[in-house]
Each structure stands twice: as C-alpha cells, then as structure tokens.
Amino acid sequence: MTLTLNEEHQLTGSGLGYQHSCYVMMRALANRSGLKYGIGKHDLVALQATYQTLEFDEIDPEGVSTDKVIEFLDDEQFEDVLAKLEDNVPLFGYPTPSNAIDPTQIKELKKHFTFRNEIYDACKKFKEDNFGDTPVISMHIRRGDFEDIQSGMFLIDDDYYEDALKLMPDGLPVLIFTNAKDYVMNNPKFIGSRFTLVHDIENNNEVVNCDWTQMMLKIVDESGMGRFYYKMVLKIMSDKTGVPVHQIIKDMSPVGKRKIKNNLYNYSYDLCMMHMCDYHIMANSSYGLWGVELSNTNKVVYPKYWMQGSHIDVDDIDNQVKMDLDGFDQTGSLAGHFINDKWVGLDNPDQRAFTMVY
C-alpha cells in the first residue's frame, strides 16, 4: 500500500525547488488515496536537509514494482495523476506547478516546510543585524547551468533586473541570491551600498578562505551533478583532483567540516533568507518560485519567459535560441496557482539570440 516517485536526477532542475514540488504532490496524493508515501533513503536529500517537519510514511519501502511505472505529463492536472495511481507501482514524471498542486491541501502542506531551527535563527539574526526593520528586496539571478543552450531555459539578461527594480520601492536594500557569484561580483550594475550578495549566511555571509570548501560549495551550487549533498560532491572532488575524500576533509577549513558534519547547505539558508524578504524579483526558477510562495511578500516581479525548449544542434544557435515568446506569459501559464494580484510579469528577452525564432 505504498506510493513512490522515481525521483529524477539531472543536471538542471532537480534541486530544492523541484523537491518541494515532489513532496507536495506525493504527500497530497497519499493523503487523498489512503496509500503510504514512501521514499528511498537518498531521495529528497536537499529538502530533508532544510526542513524539520516533513512527513514520510516509509523509508526504502519493500514490494515496490521494478518492472512497471505510471507515467504522468508535465501539463496534466493533479486530479489526472490521482486517477492513475496503483498500489506499489511507482510514478514516473516531472512534478510541476500544474500537476503537483492540490488546491484543497496546499495551504496545509506548506506548514510542513518548517525550517530547521539553526537555519531560521541564523537568517533572522542576519536580517535584523544588517537591515533592522527596513523592508528588503530579494533578487534572484539564475545563471550557471542555464548558460548552456542544452538546458532549454531562457537566460535572463541584466536589463530585466534593472527594469524590475524600477517597479520596486525606491532605495530599499537588495539581497542578491545567485548560483553565479563571480558574474554578480564582476557586474558593475550590481555594485553599490544598496546591493548585498548572499555568499554564505551560515558563515555570517563571509567567503570561506579555503580552496576545498569553496570547491565543495561551488559544485553544490552549480548544477545537479552532485545531487545536492556532500557525500556525492566529495566523491566528484576526489575524482577531479585524485585526492582521497578523507584527505580532502582532513585539509578542509573548520567551516567546511562543520557544514558536512551538521548537514548544513547554503541553498537551505538562501531559501530561508529569501522567504523572509518583503519584495521579490524572480528568476525562471522553481527554487525562487517556492521562496516566494513561502513568504509574505508585498510584491513580486517575475519573468514571463521560462523555457526555450529542447535543443539538439548547438552549432545552429540562430535557429535555436528564441529572443522572446512574442509577449506570451509562459510563466503565468505554468505557475498559475502561485500567481495573484501582487505579481507583475516582465519581458525577459534572451540576449543569446541573433534572430527571432517563432
């Protein structure tokens, strides 16, 4: 009597935002069907590292079919997926705002996302120490793996963020969350007293002076290659450098060792800090989408264009990268549950395009 999901591990789109959608879908399906929600021992590791009140019924459940799956599509509705369920037959598909959200349960399920005390307390202290009672704008810049044409995602240019800031209250401090810290630090548009780049709130937002620790944090940040947990990341580091894992840990800074020992990840702190902000400028990212959904935001500016589509011939960039979607609010269509009258959509043309493709 178990319900499971074949969790997808891929280089783009399987991180903490995706894992939120997995959880609310599967927990809601289990609640409605009477089946137990089971996960593998190494599933949803980012989610479990972030929250303390998640509810799973079984870990490594027995008797789950290995020769049959029930597939569901990105654009199906929650009720469509519910109607397909079979006992001990795993689901296979990609949870999205369209198919993962049960409107009758989402308000209650969001209460399961209670941040671990050490994460919440550190973020609250950082915000109070640096900004007091002043409202703060969250600005999420998502690049990294999105720069690869094969990701199929729109790459958002600086113009979008400059236009979005014009729609926000003038002069408020801006916290920048990004998986491309070098890009932001070297961008004159985001330098000044108004802007604070979020480096490492667990370490009082100070950059760790240790090559091993920085390498570890960068691999966790940049894509799903390390599956968002340190054990896999350390193995990748060892494979890249030829240095045994035990030696890497031995030579690592106390900050890095503390993060590994206590299962503390920057993506957990960043999301917690993002949800504490008062205004939000989004990227085309499910991570940021959940950061906003868990907040008490006053206003959200979001990019209308989310996905380019699948790309095969990387040599023919002119015919692959769309400049825009001719004004179509793709994000509004994909994330309808999340959007309300506090949300404002902006065009975010992809500057990689040399010609318009329709």
Rank of each mutant, 00 (worst) to 15 (best):
G152Y: 10
F154N: 10
F154S: 09
F154T: 09
L155Y: 08
L155N: 02
I156P: 06
I156Q: 09
D157L: 08
D157W: 13
D158L: 09
D159V: 10
Y160E: 10
Y161G: 12
E162S: 09
E162K: 14
D163P: 01
D163K: 14
D163Y: 10
A164Y: 07
L165Y: 07
L165W: 06
K166H: 02
K166A: 12
K166S: 09
L167H: 11
M168W: 03
M168P: 08
P169W: 05
P169S: 09
D170M: 03
G171V: 09
G171E: 08
L172Q: 04
V174I: 13
V174D: 03
V174T: 07
L175E: 04
F177K: 00
F177S: 02
T178F: 02
T178K: 01
N179I: 04
A180W: 01
K181T: 14
D182K: 12
D182T: 12
D182R: 09
Y183N: 05
V184A: 08
V184W: 04
M185W: 03
M185Y: 07
N186T: 11
P188Q: 06
P188M: 07
K189Y: 06
K189A: 11
F190W: 12
I191R: 01
G192D: 05
G192M: 05
G192W: 05
G192S: 10
R194T: 05
R194S: 06
R194I: 03
R194E: 09
F195W: 09
T196V: 14
T196H: 10
L197M: 11
L197C: 07
V198F: 02
V198S: 04
H199Q: 13
D200H: 09
I201N: 05
E202N: 13
N204L: 12
N204A: 14
N204E: 15
N205H: 11
N205I: 08
E206A: 12
E206F: 02
E206N: 13
V207R: 06
V207H: 02
N209E: 15
C210W: 00
D211F: 13
D211G: 13
D211M: 14
D211N: 15
T213P: 08
T213Q: 14
Q214F: 06
M215G: 13
M216Q: 06
M216I: 02
M216K: 02
L217V: 09
L217F: 06
K218D: 15
K218L: 12
I219E: 03
V220A: 07
V220W: 00
V220Y: 00
S223I: 08
G224D: 08
G224K: 03
G224S: 11
M225N: 12
M225Y: 10
G226L: 00
R227P: 02
F228V: 01
Y229N: 11
Y229S: 01
K231Q: 15
M232V: 15
M232W: 10
M232G: 07
V233D: 00
L234R: 10
L234N: 11
L234A: 13
